[in-house]
Design a protein around this nucleic acid. Sequence first.
DNA 1: AGGAATACTTACCAATCGGTACATTATTGT
DNA 2: ACAATAATGTACCGATTGGTAAGTATTCCT
Lengths: 209, 209
Amino acid sequence: MSATGVTPAPTVGRPRAFDMEKALQKALEVFWRKGYEGASLPDLCEAMGINKPSLYAAFGNKEQLFLKTIELYENRPCAFFYPALERATSYEVVQHMLCGAASTNADPDNPPGCVIVQGALACSESATFVKEALIAKRRAGEVALCTRLEQAKAEGDLPAHAEPAALARYILAVLQGMAVQATSGANCVELKQVAETVIAAWPGKKPEL
Amino acid sequence: MSATGVTPAPTVGRPRAFDMEKALQKALEVFWRKGYEGASLPDLCEAMGINKPSLYAAFGNKEQLFLKTIELYENRPCAFFYPALERATSYEVVQHMLCGAASTNADPDNPPGCVIVQGALACSESATFVKEALIAKRRAGEVALCTRLEQAKAEGDLPAHAEPAALARYILAVLQGMAVQATSGANCVELKQVAETVIAAWPGKKPEL
DNA sequence: AGGAATACTTACCAATCGGTACATTATTGT
DNA sequence: ACAATAATGTACCGATTGGTAAGTATTCCT
């Protein structure tokens, strides 16, 4: 198993004629817009600018390609979530999460919504593995936020009666709902209003004005 | 065009050997669990206990069958939304919506989540019509709630600075997020905690204790 | 220059997709 | 009894699905 998780470029043989990262980015766009099952191999190949045997040689199969695009997604467009956890107060944490979600979910340069939500929400049995991988990603985010809110509670940043698990679930529900709203056509301003509504009622300490 | 929208039972010819409403109910379950595109005709036929020609004769095609199941869905399991609008105060309106969603989204007797959310969130071009029909359903709910909140504001039930459109969008986002949570395995108690978090911070007048 | 190794192109595969033609069976009206 | 009508079961349709075999082209190493 390589340390980077990426197959190292071989020193011999014909060199690859396309950029794997750019191809992944294009595949991500297709999966993002159409979901795992709705994206066909011709769709993917056309967007990636390669043909099927190249796709299979480089990425394994459709399922593995999808999982790799999700990895890319978490490191690039959706990169607001985990960094937000490092903010000083729970107020700022949720503020950055919700505002980041509003921006990326309704970014006109990307498909609307969130691929981790809409990539495989309801699907046939053949996509069960992918569906559960996305469930795990969503749950991981919830657990991470819950841990952060427990810390906030311990620090007195959240009141003693606060329930970090319930609050984390609530915030994740709002984030996921914002993704649905974005796929329905909501724009960034509209999503920021949702974010603002949540933030205004946040039980944690607010920053000085 | 018939008044009921249902083809009247013909007086001559071989009688239908299955109950259309029960078959629709079974089809709804399949679409609910697998989504519009993830549900294949064999899936549907098996669940409905009929075969393809009967399905097409009775319901038109897959798309029309889906739209009919959505109609059934709105009148049956998901029947908490519009009735909730008739409550006396905005507090009770959102309380009933959120608690109703918690119950039906995580009802162990039904598939998890909400078919109007997950039926066709991200899909191929061939499902565009269905996808937009669901978007329209979601938007209609949002508009109806917004109208109800405008009334609440006019009645002094909501403060003068309240923005009904933003609040309605927020509540719908939470409802849709709860559906996503349910498909991820959240149970009724967990969803009720989300509902309670929202209700506790609702800006409208709270009922007497 | 000549392997060895890798990627690309074309053409194909079985399985499944949504949808239907056709013959058969069951019912009503006369 | 007999036509008219409608639902059923079987068997099929072309198109598309994810995936691959095989031949060709391009590179590195000796």
